[in-house]
Design a protein around this nucleic acid. Sequence first.
DNA 1: CGTATTTGACCAGCGC
DNA 2: GCGCTGGTCAAATACG
Length: 176
Amino acid sequence: MREEARPKISKLCVYTDPSDPSLVVKDGYQWRKYGQKVTRDNPCPRAYFRCSFAPACPVKKKVQRSAEDRRLLVATYEGEHTHSQPLSVEPPAGGSLTPSPVKVQTSSPTVTLDLTRPNPSLSPDRSSMETESPDEFQRRLAEQMVTTLTNDPGFTLALASAISGKFLGLTPDHCQ
DNA sequence: CGTATTTGACCAGCGC
DNA sequence: GCGCTGGTCAAATACG
């Protein structure tokens, strides 16, 4: 077995408003942006961040919007923090919103669905969740995602996009 | 005045 | 061997 260049890769999918150009993911850590590049795979610019709280922290973060859903931010974390969170994630000023981060930890990659924005328009398609709470619904989706991840880890992003789209009542048929 | 952020250029690695 | 893409560094600018 080799463990060369094998940092912990984590993915964090965060819903944000498409009108918000800030590729900043509030995860409780301090990040310093050190670059931005437009990849050919995605028309949206990809931002590169490094941990500014601890200079020795090897963690790097890449944030890019989903090519299909501009409201979905996909943050890729490389490595692990060698320190604690400098500050806790403060809830929105609204106070009514209750973020329900669905963290799914698999063998290697950690996929976290941080649904900071509950559901802008959740209701047109609630035929299979009228007897269960939204939290339970998310839990089921998370379990479903874990199952799929176990079978095809490479499908992570596509699945996350699909699930995310489902939350908004969308149906991204070509998720890749 | 100091810190953080932004943009452009340069370098390295991979594929054809 | 050349071209392309991704990633990082450094200098300049803006904001607090």
